[in-house]
Write a protein that binds this DNA or RNA. Structure first.
Lengths: 237, 237
DNA sequence: GTCTATAAGATGATAGAC
DNA sequence: GTCTATCATCTTATAGAC
């Protein structure tokens, strides 16, 4: 149980671990458990006792490592944000360099989404829980918007910059609103609520990333064009 | 404060109220307060004490009317769902009757969205809080999907039926996935998290429904076409 | 580092007076 | 209907032993 980090990082040899290594392992184990709990129940639905019990430590240890409940939440959010942001930035850089003047909206959106979709499909339950957490936070009133801003604004601005090369005549507000629509589609997908499963009578599954990925790219790219280039989307033909 | 219901329903004359009327007024006042609290803090972030204090009643009265915290939440959710569903169904019926064989994706999506967007812009803070609550619930893991299904599935199936008339060759799964994208965009908008405000440096505002409405319709309609009719969306020209 | 013990207060819910 | 009083439990957090 809760073997996300152990499954994703090379396991240190069992004997001969230094104190620092053991401490680090405990810290990561707490983060893994907290990540899962927060993603399922939200910030207020989780108690430190539940996290401590599942991580097989005492609640006092959570305070030792993360000070407060909010501190634990922030640590969970930050851990993978750094990895993801670096990856997305590089993907956008790479795409822009490769495409040259032939940048398309599809290409930009794909470069932005693929680091998420690929991990969602392949990188194990830890990342999956993290993405579900993002899905919850993005739709959280009061502090959700501020939190997303704090961690993810730079890469969004990078995306918009690339999209603008494909739609040079687009107005700023149209680009931002279009991203807003994409953001909603993406984070609802990441939340994996199972709603599409029952709505569709089983035809679609929330966890079928391979099915939703290409459709999200096509849907969003067409949406960007329709909003940012009125007349660019042809209702007929 | 918390004058949503009083502002939206004709005020009964102050004297000569029957006991039943006073009871009903208290019940509605509790629902109004709970609606606001749940929409801002989510199910687990709200305490019955906070609701009782703001509604100027005792917590025991909440249990008298709604049995439990979950009962109160469900009552909040149901109250406006009935009104909204009826309105959306009629809007879709009306559009289909008017358009005849000239049904368009834009028209169907607009008929589906307008009852929400119009209320969001004009119907007062009560409806606004309710929509924010929908935004939170739609992205809530574990029970969010089930709750949305319970209250809103019929009208979604009605929407898809109308869209299918505009896209007769569309496959079922493409229609459902497209709706899924629209659902994410809509509920993020309804949550009004303020994220777009800071992301755009003030160019866009979360509460500017007049700005987001037309863009959501254009974005979603183009997305439906791109997903459901491959080749129907033209990247160039 | 990790645990025991405990503080200090909040929580959902109920029984019963009026 | 509405309130007072109260219960049993749970909550975050801290002090200090080992």
């Amino acid at each position: 149980m809760t073997s996300a980090a152990r499954a994703e990082t090379p396991a240190p040899r069992r004997s001969g671990r230094t104190r620092a290594e053991k401490s680090q392992a405990t810290r990561e184990r707490i983060l893994d458990v907290a990540e899962g709990e927060f993603s399922r129940h939200g910030m207020d639905g989780v108690t430190l006792r539940a996290v401590a019990r599942k991580a097989r430590v005492d609640t006092a240890l959570l305070h030792y490592y993360f000070d407060s409940k909010k501190g634990l939440f922030d640590a969970v959010f930050l851990r993978r944000a750094e990895v993801l942001n670096k990856d997305r930035m590089e993907a956008l850089d790479r795409y822009e360099a490769e495409a040259g003047d032939a940048v398309t909206v599809e290409g930009a959106v794909a470069a932005f989404l693929n680091p998420v979709l690929d991990r969602c499909a392949n990188a194990g339950p830890g990342w999956r829980a993290y993405f579900a957490l993002i899905g919850v936070v993005n739709n959280t009133p009061l502090w959700g918007g501020e939190t997303m801003t704090r961690y993810f604004d730079p890469v969004i601005h990078r995306l918009i910059k690339v999209v603008r090369r494909a739609l040079p005549e687009a107005r700023e507000e149209d680009l931002f609103w279009s991203y807003h629509m994409l953001s909603g589609s993406l984070t609802l997908t990441l939340a994996e609520t199972g709603r599409i499963d029952t709505l569709s009578g089983g035809i679609c599954r929330s966890d079928d990333i391979a099915a939703v990925g290409p459709r999200m790219i096509a849907y969003a790219a067409a949406g960007f064009r329709a909003v940012c280039r009125p007349g660019g989307d042809q209702p007929s033909a």
